[in-house]
């Protein structure tokens, strides 16, 4: 068995967290991952606080195991959602898009384990000081909103910068990724893309088919000009968006308008106007499986690889 301090910290069997993918990570997926021995997450995205409360309660009906909520700090509802997770006393909160320092006390008082997603060593240090229990360091191989550094370079630098547990994210979709993450100093992984094709993931079949079909070179990063780069699968829509960013005839407002709502459209299966967010690891995702089977398979592989690591030492 692969056991790390993340298992103890979160009360889980396998040191794996499911990514807090907006419009995708709902109660059903979160509960399936938690029932499979990992930590499932509900993405609060831009949703209002009552939607989040309902999803938390739905997840509680589907699993007795711990799960968490991912809070997008730029959401207009962030403050209300921050209160709801404290009231509901969810086990874990992860945060994205900023610095959650002002909420950490509230969450700690509710007994919540706080794991901010960070894209630099500086931000990791800042949230450690603010009281975070660990960090999820996410490299730019990931899907959705991304930073600049790769997982390979970010993880060891974050590990050097902080004393709290570091979870690696970005580019991990199989046991090799898990093994590598542990070697870089992480004590667990966060995986998004591979769970897109989990049986319990409710996205449209068109979305799943695109992930399963994707090769290594099939993702593209848009949104750089707007200051918030997003990785998604190449499609006529994302390619068009990409080229418009280099066209001064389009204003930033127009670009924002076109991109806005495009993930939701992808989740609903809109092949023309949807932005199918996925990480570079999409090329490693080969078949649809139940979430529990994905977790078991990944850790079976990781155990094998780590077990034979002695062969490199002569």
């Amino acid at each position: 068995m692969v056991k790390t301090r993340l298992c103890e910290l979160l009360g889980i069997e396998y040191p794996i967290i499911q990514g807090g993918m907006a419009w995708i990570a709902d109660a059903r997926l979160a509960a399936a991952v938690s029932n499979g021995g990992g930590l499932g997450l509900i993405a609060a995205m831009n949703a209002d606080a009552e939607w989040v409360r309902n999803e938390i309660r739905k997840a509680r009906e589907l699993t007795d195991r711990p799960f968490g909520v991912n809070i997008m700090l730029l959401s207009p509802n962030a403050e209300a959602v921050a209160k709801v997770v404290a009231e509901e006393r969810v086990k874990v909160v992860t945060t994205g898009a900023g610095n959650p320092a002002k909420y950490i006390r509230l969450w700690k008082e509710a007994g919540i384990t706080v794991l901010p997603v960070v894209a630099s060593a500086g931000l990791a240090k800042l949230v450690e000081r603010a009281g975070a229990d660990g960090v999820i360091a996410e490299g730019c191989e990931a899907g959705g909103h991304i930073g600049e550094l790769t997982t390979m370079t970010l993880i060891p630098q974050v590990c050097d910068a902080v004393n709290i547990p570091v979870v690696a994210a970005g580019g991990i979709a199989d046991g090799r990724g898990i093994a590598a993450a542990l070697m870089l100093g992480a004590c667990g992984v966060q995986v998004g893309t591979r769970f897109l094709v989990a049986d319990e993931c409710g996205i449209h079949e068109n979305y799943k088919a695109r992930v399963l079909k994707a090769k290594d070179i099939d993702t593209i990063v848009t949104g750089k000009r707007l200051g918030h780069p997003v990785r998604s699968l190449k499609s006529p829509f994302s390619r068009q968006l990409f080229s418009m960013e280099y066209d001064p005839n389009y204003s930033n407002e127009e670009l924002e308008r076109i991109a806005s709502g495009s993930l939701k459209r992808a989740v609903e299966g809109d092949e023309k106007q949807g932005c199918f967010m996925a990480g570079q690891s999409a090329g490693l995702v080969k078949k649809a499986q139940p979430a529990a089977e994905i977790i078991k398979e990944m850790f079976g592989e990781a155990e094998k690889i780590l077990g034979s690591a002695g062969q490199w030492i002569k």
């Binding site: 610095n99 630099s120 500086g122 200051g227």
Partner: peptide, 11 residues
């Protein structure tokens, strides 16, 4: 400076 640069500067 982006938001991550600003964090490093402040620190």
């Amino acid at each position: 400076l982006d938001s991550l640069d600003a964090v490093d500067l402040v620190m």
